[in-house]
């Protein structure tokens, strides 16, 4: 079996725009799931609302496409009621960090055995490009026409501080690393959070100087800084530029977890 066998062939091609990074993240996640050797019938995908949340509809397992922001709460019910199921949540930055922020931090606190993959495109894509809690300061969106004046959430820092067992960040450029990171999350008991920065050419890129699909990928490539290297730079007293994206496994621990398969 390969990861391609996990797709609902009859629903492809999916609805994502040309060059959208979400499709890449689905590939990486399914590849990690496939590597785990899990059965389709023991695996459940859950999502909320937004571009990211359409992902489970293209996967041939049981899947629950729920309401905006609430995917983790629904997934909590599934996992607690049947810990034998492997539950993976697809979410986006708006879904997870704005309307669903409370569910996110409480799931981290409970350290419930879910793997949450967040496709962070730094914008509300499906509704046409409004600012989200991860829109970088200064970035343009339809609701921040003069540049975002708010600070952005560090989703990984939030997850780690709230108690998640496993936290990682990569981008849609880092396909091999992202696959390994998701796999690490699937292997680790407790709450695993993987943030995948993705390009949104339609609603983020073209407003923010990434004219071509490739431009944002090039940016991810050139601005990614492995966490180990960042730590070394800090030790050496070097300043890390604000626009660098710290990637890597940011937390891995084994605190007591809820809903772990017996």
């Amino acid at each position: 079996m390969t990861y391609a066998d996990w797709f609902r062939e009859d629903r492809l091609p999916h609805i994502y725009c040309v060059g959208c990074g979400n499709g890449t993240v689905i590939n990486c996640t399914l590849s990690a799931v496939d590597q785990m050797g899990w059965e389709k019938e023991e695996t459940v995908f859950v999502s909320g609302i937004g571009c990211s949340s359409r992902a489970p509809g293209y996967i041939v397992t049981d899947s629950l496409h729920t309401t905006h922001g609430r995917a983790i709460a629904f997934a909590t019910g599934i996992k607690m009621a049947n810990p034998d199921l492997r539950v993976i949540v697809f979410t986006g930055d708006g879904d997870l960090a704005a309307i669903g922020g409370n569910h996110f931090i409480h799931a981290c606190r409970r350290n419930i055995d879910l793997t949450v993959v967040c496709m962070n495109n730094m914008i509300y894509g499906m509704t046409g490009g409004q600012g989200s809690p991860t829109t970088p300061p200064g970035a343009l969106s339809t609701t921040t026409p003069y540049g975002s004046g708010e600070a952005a959430f560090d989703l990984c820092g939030l997850a780690a501080a709230a108690g998640a067992n496993y936290v990682a960040r990569y981008t849609s450029y880092h396909v091999k690393e992202l696959t390994r990171a998701v796999r690490g999350g699937l292997e680790n008991p407790g709450f695993s959070f993987i943030e995948a920065l993705v390009q949104c050419p339609t609603n983020y890129g073209r407003r923010n100087k990434f004219r071509q699909v490739m431009d944002q990928i090039e940016y991810f490539k050139s601005h990614a800084l492995l966490v180990q290297k960042a730590d070394r730079m800090r030790e050496e007293g070097k300043k890390i530029p604000d626009d660098m994206i710290i990637i890597g496994i940011l937390a891995r621990r084994n605190r007591p977890a809820l809903g772990v398969r017996k």
């Binding site: 091609p13 999916h14 979400n22 499709g23 890449t24 590939n27 849609s172 396909v175 091999k176």
Partner: peptide, 17 residues
């Protein structure tokens, strides 16, 4: 086994095989 395969993995549209 698949070697490299980065094009297939990054292809957002599952079009490469």
């Amino acid at each position: 086994r698949t070697l490299c395969g980065v094009c297939q993995m990054i292809c957002p549209d599952q079009a490469i095989s």
